[in-house]
Write a protein that binds this DNA or RNA. Sequence first.
DNA 1: AATACGGACGAACATCCGTTCGCGAGGCGA
DNA 2: TCGCCTCGCGAACGGATGTTCGTCCGTATT
Lengths: 211, 211
Amino acid sequence: MSELSTKQSHIMEYIRDFIEEKDYPPSIRDIQFGCGISSTSVVDYNLRRLEEKGLLRRDREVSRGIELLEGRRRRGTVDVPVLGAIAAGQPIPVPTSDRWASDVEDTVTVTEEMVRGHDNVFALRVKGTSMIEDLIDDGDIVFLEPATTADDGEKVAVWLEDRGEVTLKRLYREQDRIRLQPANSTMPPIYVDPENVRIQGRFISSIRPSG
Amino acid sequence: MSELSTKQSHIMEYIRDFIEEKDYPPSIRDIQFGCGISSTSVVDYNLRRLEEKGLLRRDREVSRGIELLEGRRRRGTVDVPVLGAIAAGQPIPVPTSDRWASDVEDTVTVTEEMVRGHDNVFALRVKGTSMIEDLIDDGDIVFLEPATTADDGEKVAVWLEDRGEVTLKRLYREQDRIRLQPANSTMPPIYVDPENVRIQGRFISSIRPSG
DNA sequence: AATACGGACGAACATCCGTTCGCGAGGCGA
DNA sequence: TCGCCTCGCGAACGGATGTTCGTCCGTATT
């Protein structure tokens, strides 16, 4: 029904790249040559289809009157997927079992400096106040970088296999166990078997949406 | 030398607004009518001047081939002026005396939700850790809304007239004095005469640039 | 006063560019 | 097989738009 043909997604991609590079939309003939299409009418035809599908808006009779309606990201910002909630109080289960999958429930747009120098950053909503002394409050959004290892004392999101839960804590290795330390003096640390722990991500930064 | 004539800044503003609204640049004739200019050549002339001054870039022979080179703000973000540093430890003086003036030393771009619902927001760099228990650390940037009053317990930036300093604290009114309370149990409150205190801004939110 | 120059006018010109139209190749159900 | 629809092709039409050119005016400069 609302599938895009190869040509249509090619056109979309071309428009995106064109705007990204030049800061103004392509003309129909720009698209024609850029996508190797033989006629302007074909471009027009597909543009109409794309407009019907709500992917863009066109101003008639106006040169380059194309406006993309999809996520218009601005230079200097990045969209980070919010994969769900994470416990900073009592550990709570996350919807996906093994590896939190690709079904993104939401997205937050932040300026680049919040995640600068890190790749594949994802975000989680914090529940609880167990990391309050590390300046992470209930309701904050934390940004994490995928990781499977961590140094002692680092703030990490860990998956506790037996509990089926994920939690945000500082991680310390002790003899034959791992200590997950809340940053809240009213809460005791959690001790777990190393085999039971899978590090999922390393803390980068957090934001607190204004209330 | 590089001053803009009235007409030129009018044109710049028009282009900005046009792009903001339509997502593609105006044609020369759009600018002509939009700015009440009698001839397209006048627009062309001034666009060349603006191009020389580095405020925009033009693609010759291309309709709407105008690209603004100034801060291209993206939808959903706002630029907040950073007016300087503020003490969250020992109060430190701010450069301007009475009212921190309009010379902005820097700017931060943040997504709208950080300051949603507030006007004329400005930002200050935090020095010190006196507000650490309110999750505001050294190096954070705090966003404030201009205000001259505050309820008890609110976090405010206050100007201490006799000291010539400004500081970020929680404010409490007591009999005939005002208590400025740090959020750091190792630090004592500051007591000041009400006449000596001028509230400058009310805390909205803060960010912690990733390190 | 003569000259130079920034800035503005208005009109003509040459493209640029969106739109339209006729035609044709497949795919699909009746 | 006969429509009917989707998709594509190529060309031509005409409006949209950037560019250029001759002219004019006001303000220094000489």
